[in-house]
Design a protein around this nucleic acid. Structure first.
Lengths: 123, 123
DNA sequence: ACTATTGTATTAAGGCCTTAATACAATAGT
DNA sequence: ACTATTGTATTAAGGCCTTAATACAATAGT
């Protein structure tokens, strides 16, 4: 999985989001070990300090647990991961719908459009 | 309409997006006059330089036309506005679906979820 | 003809982000 | 017991963004 960081937003925020996605999708399973700050920073081509910043935030949120000298692991609290995942999903959907509404698309139009595109994307 | 700027992304980019939305939704109709840089900057509570930067970009994209001493107007090219609007809508949808997929939601699940939320939001 | 208004340009300062270079404490693993 | 590895902290530099203060050219409106 590439990291695909963009320059229009702070990198550390994008790192937080990317790691969250990996946790939610199961790419980083509950209880599994994360690479060390230095390693994962190199993977993402960012400075260790920047990665450290992202990881600290994830720990604050409870998704990641830090073991002082043996690295970090993903939380084993599956329910908690599920809750966070659903919360983010709802936020995504609301933000998406609101943006479409701001652009002038009614809810029905939005739904029709997304249906059409999903069909096209299947091909 | 409030401007609602956040601090996690450059303001000038958020200004560009907000003005685009207003054009697409018809709040700023084709051919209509925009407030002066100074005025609209004050509306949005940003520095005139920052607003100027956003407006320059919008002009570059062709959505806004600058009249050296009489201010700026929205383009009268309705087709062009429509094209830009649809392009943005498609981008939004794709980005949304991809993010949901990255989180582990299948397309069908995403569709079901959004359907459910739209129903709830009607109430 | 005058004047206010328009967009535009410049310079300086401060803030946050990012990188880079180092260093240190704690301990897992041998 | 030693050593490599871990997270953590600090300092300095540079970059982009934003604000602030000014100034100027062009012209619409009177």
């Amino acid at each position: 999985m590439p990291w695909d960081l963009k320059s229009d937003r702070p990198i550390y925020i994008q790192l937080i989001e990317e790691i969250q996605l990996r946790i939610f999708s199961g790419e980083y399973p509950p209880g599994s070990k994360l690479p060390s700050v230095r390693d994962i920073a190199q993977e993402a081509s960012v400075n260790p300090n920047t990665m450290q910043r992202a990881l600290s935030k994830l720990e604050e949120d409870g998704l990641v647990i830090t073991h002082r000298t043996s690295g970090r692991t993903i939380t084993e609290d599956v329910e908690m991961i599920k809750r966070a995942k659903n919360k983010l999903a709802v936020q995504q959907i609301i933000a998406f719908i609101e943006k479409m509404q701001q652009m002038g698309f009614e809810k029905k139009e939005t739904l029709a459009l997304i249906n059409k595109m999903l069909e096209e994307m299947e091909i």
